[in-house]
């Protein structure tokens, strides 16, 4: 593996050269809030040890995306957007890209989603580790290493004392692209670089996956206790890096219908409302149950990954104080307890 060592200003200069061919997205501070933002000047990039408020999912799965234009002349598809470089992505958000790759692929339900993958194919992910765990984060409980993720194309590590940036090129296909940086080229193993992948194997193996009978969980877990104070605002799902449910909204203008794919939320009553007025998920109790089990049981069953990265965003943002981690831990306590008590009954 090649590692580039450069000064912070050389890093910024190199990024500046990408603007023509790439959309550059990186953490940046706007009115005090750090967020993944479209960058027009490398000086905007803020690589501090903080988790951006929202997840970067809208780069691959925009809030609103026109997928078709339908008119009497035919149907056409908007052009493929410019390739994107996403810089400074935290390991939890890189893990979320893995979840989305699986959910939108054929592996999940036989169809692959072409709009997701045309953005994904041209996305270059440059990750960056966390130094400290933030309040509300629980990536470690899910076995995610906060310092590194190899599900990225390159990874940054910063020596803040000396203002030096190390860029580890994980996918050699990008070696030539990154020659834009005025940098010293090092090989891994050289004494100057720290072992970036050393902690991978030490990462905790805790696993919060819920593995119990679906019907029993539906009936025996006191879902209403967890969801009582939910206000149905939907913030938890918009802010989440793995929530991926959507709705189509058609808008007609001068004989051309744009079919827009918009984010939807399982926390809204209308999400499952039938035209007849019947609603299979009648209250917030059932909706929160869907959110928890979709992440911790259904996606794991269908795509073999847990669809929660422990980023803690939903917990920090929820005005009702709902806490998915506490709910999951309580469910695990109860299901494991019931398995134990059933085993005792058998004795």
């Amino acid at each position: 593996m090649i590692i580039l060592k450069m000064s912070r200003s050389a890093f910024h200069d190199g990024i500046g050269k990408l603007f023509g061919d790439y959309r550059v997205v990186a953490p940046s501070r706007i009115n005090g809030t750090l967020d993944y933002t479209d960058i027009v000047d490398p000086a905007q990039i803020d690589l501090s040890d903080e988790l951006p408020y929202k997840s970067p999912k809208e780069i691959l799965f925009p809030r609103v995306e026109t997928i078709l234009r339908i008119s009497d002349d035919g149907i056409d598809v908007p052009d493929t957007p410019k390739p994107t470089i996403l810089i400074g992505v935290k390991p939890c958000d890189i893990t979320a890209i893995n979840v989305m790759d699986k959910v939108f692929s054929k592996e999940n339900n036989k169809f692959s989603d072409p709009y997701y993958f045309r953005r994904r194919e041209s996305l270059i992910v440059i990750g960056m580790g966390c130094v400290h765990k933030k309040p509300g984060c629980f990536c470690d409980e899910l076995g995610i290493d906060m310092t590194f993720s190899d599900y990225s194309d390159a990874f940054i590590s910063i020596d803040n004392d000396n203002n030096i940036v190390f860029l580890y090129i994980l996918d050699e296909k990008y070696e030539s692209l990154f020659s834009i940086f005025d940098a010293q080229v090092l090989e891994s193993g050289s004494p100057e670089v720290s072992e970036i992948n050393s902690r991978v194997n030490e990462s905790t193996t805790k696993n919060l996956r819920i593995d119990a009978d679906e019907k029993e969980l539906f009936e025996e877990i006191p879902w209403e206790l967890y969801s009582e104070s939910c206000l149905e605002c939907g913030i938890c799902t918009y802010i989440c890096p793995t929530c991926h449910c959507f709705e189509f909204r058609d808008v007609e203008d001068c004989g051309v219908t744009c079919r827009n794919r918009c984010w939807d939320s399982c926390m809204y009553p209308s999400f499952t409302l039938h035209a007849s007025g019947h609603n299979p998920r009648a209250t917030q109790r059932e909706r929160f149950r869907q959110r928890v089990l979709h992440k911790y049981m259904y996606v794991p069953k269908n795509c073999s990954v847990i669809a929660c990265t422990g980023c803690g965003r939903c917990i920090r943002a929820c005005p009702g104080g709902l806490n998915i981690l506490r709910a999951v831990q309580d469910i695990l306590d109860r299901t494991i307890f019931s398995k134990v008590s059933k085993a005792e009954e058998c004795v």
Partner: peptide, 17 residues
């Protein structure tokens, strides 16, 4: 069920997994 995509992506129509 209420459906949007028909192809298992939009997350609308599940009953359990």
């Amino acid at each position: 069920m209420r459906m949007t995509c028909g192809i298992g992506k939009c997350g609308k129509c599940n009953i359990g997994h």
